[in-house]
Simulated scan of single mutants.
Amino acid sequence: MNIRQDDPAAPHVSGLLAFHLEELRGVMGEHAFALDASGLSSPDVTFWTAWREDELAGFAALKHLGAGLGEVKSMRAAPSARGSGVGRALMDHVIAEARQRGYRELYLETGTAPLHEPAIGLYRRSGFVNCAAFADYQPSPHNQFMVLAL
């Protein structure tokens, strides 16, 4: 698998990103905080894609929160790549980058619906634990918050 920094507005990303946003908004409504291409293109966000040969297998992003803190944003495995280890590879990549940047903590926000269970399992296996809402997030029955001490 090849993971590379990429442009979230690139045509090869648009289909998977649209699927990601539509699925989350369908389950979480106004509590879906996933970023679109313009949000993922922000200067404080780094975006990567994962590839298996010439097939887009997934993407992930890391947002700089300031003061030694980061946030995992918009992790997604392509439907054809689920269960293949792409999520683990992307998570390992984001954690390694956060450590390289000297972050002390890495946060994430995710949902509570059954759709999120595989991702939540990955986050827990990576060492994330539940925490209070962070940054500008507000708690709701549709969201949960996690942190990894680096």
Rank of each mutant, 00 (worst) to 15 (best):
D6Q: 12
D6H: 13
P8W: 03
A9G: 11
A10L: 13
P11G: 15
H12M: 04
V13I: 12
S14T: 14
L16K: 04
H20L: 10
L21F: 10
E23V: 15
R25A: 12
G26N: 10
V27K: 02
M28E: 15
M28Q: 14
G29K: 09
F33D: 13
A34K: 01
D36H: 09
G39L: 06
G39E: 13
S41V: 09
D44T: 14
F47P: 06
D54H: 15
E55G: 13
A57N: 11
G58P: 06
G58T: 06
K63I: 00
K63E: 02
H64C: 00
E71V: 03
K73G: 01
S74H: 05
S74G: 11
M75A: 02
R76W: 04
R76M: 13
A78C: 10
P79K: 11
A81F: 12
V86K: 10
L90Q: 11
D92G: 14
Q100K: 14
G102I: 01
G102K: 03
L106G: 00
L108I: 01
L108V: 04
A113I: 06
P114Y: 09
E117M: 06
P118N: 14
A119N: 02
L122N: 03
L122S: 05
R125T: 09
R125P: 06
S126V: 01
F128V: 01
C131S: 11
C131V: 05
A132M: 09
A133W: 04
A135L: 05
D136E: 14
Q138E: 07
P139V: 07
